[in-house]
Design a protein around this nucleic acid. Structure first.
Length: 436
DNA sequence: CCTCAAGGTCAAT
DNA sequence: ATTGACCTTGAGG
């Protein structure tokens, strides 16, 4: 085969330009492919101006007659059926598929932020994507802020929440700080959740020192009925979480109840967010019992009709809430690579700061002491890889979106009750009903 | 990791 | 308004 024939092998079957592959089942260049796609999606009808329907289609003159170009596309073997129907403009594109996430976790996180008001990619997210890609392959000296950001997610300085624990433990003093007690308790909670909600051999349930209760294989689409049944269990875990702090039992009974009440709210908001991040599949929002709901609009996992609550009621109440959780809490946490210890500290700060106004004058100094201690430990244990003050500040900045979301959470549940949509656990209702 | 073939974007026309 | 280079995505290897 001579050179001429070899070149011809890779010609566009429509216009004889260099083909870029198979498009809609025909070997063609990207220009003819784009032309064909547009013609089909927009349902365009052309007429040959010459009237003979046999215009020469060659890449220098391929735009002279659309009718003949389209006809030649069909002759070359392009299939109209291979053009996918035009996406509904108000239907958001799924950015969080597994393969998409695998390719670029940081990008996916950023896209959650832009999902609601900006369905398409902004120039800035494209820029950051490009710079992240180039960073991971070459790793030059970080010079700009953008570079510094990218360095945080590079393999060298990336510390996964789980890897981080042993180092942290070795730092713990003989008398454990509140934060250390909460970290230990959080890991026990993970173990308890595993035991209660995973169907696995006992050996793999016990003793695991992991901070995440579930693996990708454990999680299943959420059944609201099952979740309702598990609510008391979650409340019990929260009660135990509080009791991990010796100071808790020194509070008056009213203060203990007030604290528990607020913690039920805040933990119900925060825990699934962090479990979701640990599982790492952004198309699945994973709840405390290992049930997940899909974050994709066109996937019904966890949203199906149930006897107690219809799909549309679920969507009405929980979809906006889910969006807020993903945007205001999950996305920022992913972006800053929040470690397990930092999450536990944040959870503590939210729990105690958010309760301050409900606590008696006698109890406030106790809470204040716990808060100060957690802040101290958090600041001391921010990794040296970061600008300590900046990272500490960024973690504190998470507080207000969390409080906002919690407020909405309470409001939505008032709505649930008002419409009598489904029977919530009576204990949870007692916690949510009284003063916000 | 990678490639392939979809869809989307937008400066140039 | 149309074109086409260039981009990301998702499936599959």
């Amino acid at each position: 085969m001579d050179v001429k024939d070899q070149l011809k092998q890779y010609q566009c079957k429509v216009c004889s330009a260099h083909a870029t592959g198979f498009h809609f089942d025909a070997q063609s260049c990207s220009a003819c492919a784009a032309f064909f796609r547009r013609t089909v999606t927009l349902n365009k009808k052309y007429r040959c101006q010459i009237g003979k329907n046999d215009c020469l289609i060659i890449y220098t003159e391929r735009n002279l007659c659309r009718a003949c170009r389209f006809q030649k596309c069909l002759q070359a073997g392009m299939k109209k059926e291979s053009v996918q129907p035009k996406k509904n403009t108000n239907q958001l594109r799924a950015y969080y598929t597994n393969s998409g996430l695998k390719r670029n976790k940081r990008f996916a996180a950023a896209s959650i932020l832009t999902q609601i008001d900006r369905p398409s990619l902004s120039t800035t997210s494209l820029e950051s994507l490009t710079s992240v890609n180039s960073m991971t392959s070459t790793t030059p000296e970080p010079t700009t802020d953008e570079d510094m950001l990218s360095t945080l997610s590079s393999p060298r300085s990336f510390v996964s929440p789980i890897d981080h624990i042993p180092m942290y433990r070795s730092l713990s003093s003989p008398i454990d700080s509140p934060l250390q007690l909460l970290i230990d308790e959080e890991m026990r909670i993970a173990e308890r959740r595993r035991i209660m909600f995973c169907e696995r051999p006992v050996g793999s349930l016990l003793g695991a020192s992991k901070s995440c209760p579930y693996t990708k294989d454990d999680i299943k689409p959420l059944v609201f009925r099952n979740f309702r049944k598990s609510i008391r269990t979650h409340i019990l875990l929260i009660y135990e979480w509080l009791r991990a702090l010796p100071d808790y039992s020194t509070l008056s009974m009213n203060d203990q109840i007030a604290l528990l009440r607020k913690c039920v709210l805040y933990h119900t908001v925060l825990d699934p967010c962090y479990i979701t991040i640990q599982i790492g599949e952004m198309d699945k929002f994973v709840m405390q019992n290992g049930g997940y709901v899909s974050t994709l609009e066109d996937c019904d996992d966890g949203w199906k009709d149930e006897k107690e609550i219809s799909r549309s009621s679920k969507k009405l109440i929980y979809w906006p809430l889910l969006n807020q959780l993903m945007t205001a809490i999950v996305a920022p946490m992913i972006q800053m690579n929040l470690t397990f210890e930092e999450f536990v500290a944040l959870k503590g700060l939210v729990s105690f700061q958010g309760t301050m106004c409900d606590i008696s004058d006698a109890g406030r100094p106790v809470l204040k002491r716990i808060l100060d201690s957690i802040c101290q430990s958090l600041y001391n244990n921010v990794s040296e890889d970061y600008d300590k003050a900046e990272r500490f500040g960024n973690i504190l900045l998470m507080l207000s979106p969390i409080f906002d979301t919690a407020l909405n959470f309470v409001e939505s549940h008032h709505q649930v009750q008002f419409f009598d949509l489904w029977q919530l656990d009576s204990l949870l209702l007692q916690f949510l009903k009284n003063k916000v």
